[in-house]
Computed example of a mutant assay.
Amino acid sequence: MLNKFELEKRVTDAFLRSKGLIQFKLIKPEGDPPDIIAQIGDKLIGIEVTLIHSNQSQLRLEKNYSKIFIRVKELLAKSGVNNLVIRVEPEIIKGLHREKCSEVIANACLGNLDKIGFNRTELVMNPFLGIKKIVAFRAVEEGIIITFDSRSNSYGPLRSSRIESVIEGKINKLNKAKQEAPKQHSLLNENWLLMTIEGTFYSNYAGVADDRISIGLKNCYDRVFVYHERKNWIQELEVMLNAV
């Protein structure tokens, strides 16, 4: 199992390559922040890596459905299905019956295999309490992928308010680190903040709501990015001081 630094190194490597960079070296810093030091040419860039979530209620919802989706994969694999993408639009309820939900999703796919092609196919609406809709399509590569439906309004772009709170927290952390270890930080040419969306259910996100972010603190990061690990898109944010 990868440790914290190895995980951050992996995502930073993927991010830099997505930016078109090939020649670079990733170094473990003496302190935190930054999480990673990237040597790019003659520059040393401190990169703070953080995973960004939309909100806590969504995290709880995903935790519940992740167990359902694992069970669906097991049921479909037993039936010989091995190249399907399934998207479920959930609803937030208490007392979710996980096993029944798993069976409903699997049966909806198995009962409609003959009409599922490479285009998005709507299978069923409101089949069971906790599920609003199930859609599916064939995958080119072998494997079963189950996510939330990207057309659900609950899983739209990442909201500016969530991004703002993450940036402000990281600014406070970096300013404190600079005060405690000024010599170490003086060696860095730039500081970047890299907010990542991991390749789980967040693969549905197509971007952020606004790439101009207004915060209540002076920004100490030279560049701020949001990076999608699975889809490899990058959005650089313009971070401004809120004048109000």
Rank of each mutant, 00 (worst) to 15 (best):
H97F: 13
L129F: 10
T147Y: 03
L123P: 01
E6Q: 15
V135K: 04
V81T: 10
R223M: 05
M195R: 03
L84D: 03
E168F: 03
P29T: 11
E229F: 02
Q39E: 15
L187I: 12
V88E: 00
E168H: 07
L113A: 05
V72N: 02
N242E: 13
G117K: 14
S57F: 09
M240G: 05
R159I: 11
A206I: 12
N204L: 07
V88P: 00
L194W: 01
L110G: 05
D35S: 06
F128Y: 15
K73Y: 06
K94V: 10
I86F: 03
G143H: 09
Q184R: 14
E168W: 04
S160D: 01
E198G: 10
P157L: 00
E198I: 14
S165Y: 09
D114S: 14
I213Y: 04
L241S: 07
Q58R: 07
Y227N: 02
L59G: 06
E91Q: 12
S102Y: 01
S152W: 05
V140W: 09
S160A: 11
L217R: 15
I167Q: 00
L96F: 06
L123C: 04
L123Q: 03
K133E: 07
K133F: 04
N175C: 09
K183Y: 13
H228A: 09
I213V: 14
V81A: 06
D222C: 08
